[in-house]
């Protein structure tokens, strides 16, 4: 009987079995070109995992989400090693800017989002923790990003998302730069996404890429520019 690699990989992630996941991917790569592992195996599995996570499925926890992000990082790292110089999993989307809002020092969720975005081909510029509104918009301006992804764990720090909104609007980037937010507080209190002026959030770290696709397209539809990247207002 033919092996169901997708199901096996999903189960390994749910068991938090990082090395087991690597073995399954190796076995898959024995029959397929490794360069196809992201679109043909990893992405569909992560999408299913993301749906389970978002629905509160038993057995999916922050820890298994962490393992999923590590599996994704392992794959990207191997793609980079095996690719000819200048090749590998070259980003085809973005660039986008990520960071934890000012006064927030909880990096785990942001790092997971970065790993999942990179898996889906995004060029991610990760600014780290405790990033001010000015730093976010400066970075977006510098690299030409149409999306700022801001992470906050608690309500008190999430309020600083409103400052990023003000900075974006104050510099005339409304609609050009989209503001995506994530973190525990937005999952618990989704009404805060709008209240703090964000343009969207996702149900789980895994589904951040779909959100970024949507926000990127929304920005382009409002301000097409040339070549997709951000232009000055």
């Amino acid at each position: 009987m033919e092996r169901n690699y997708s199901q096996e990989l999903l189960m390994a992630i749910e068991r938090a079995d990082r090395s087991g996941a690597a073995l399954i991917i190796d076995a898959w790569a024995g029959q397929h070109a490794f360069s196809r592992v992201v679109p043909d195996l990893l992405s569909p599995v992560l999408e299913t995992f993301g749906n389970l996570w978002a629905s509160g499925h038993g057995g999916v926890s922050l820890a298994t989400g962490y393992v999923a992000s590590k599996v994704a990082e392992d794959v990207l790292s191997r793609l980079l090693q095996e690719a000819p110089a200048g090749g590998g999993n070259t980003p085809v989307k973005g660039p986008v800017v990520l960071g934890n809002v000012e006064d927030d020092f909880h990096p785990l969720g942001r790092k997971m989002v970065a790993a999942f975005l990179r898996t889906e081909g995004w060029d991610v510029r990760d600014l780290g923790v405790d990033v001010s509104a000015k730093q976010f918009v400066d970075a977006a301006e510098e690299v030409g990003s149409r999306i700022i992804g801001a992470s906050a764990m608690m309500h008190t720090t999430a309020k600083n998302v409103a400052r990023i909104r003000e900075e974006i609007d104050g510099r005339g980037y409304t609609g050009r730069i989209m503001l995506a937010v994530g973190g525990a507080v937005f999952k618990l209190r989704p009404e805060l996404v709008k209240a703090f002026g964000a343009d969207g959030t996702s149900d789980s770290a895994v589904s951040a890429s779909a959100l970024f696709d949507e926000l990127w397209q929304r920005s382009i539809s409002l301000y097409p520019g040339t070549g997709g990247a951000l232009e000055q207002p």
């Binding site: 068991r15 938090a16 038993g58 057995g59 926890s61 922050l62 820890a63 298994t64």
Partner: peptide
């Protein structure tokens, strides 16, 4: 809490 870690942990 199994919301954060696996049941096994």
């Amino acid at each position: 809490n199994a919301f954060l870690v696996t049941n096994s942990v």
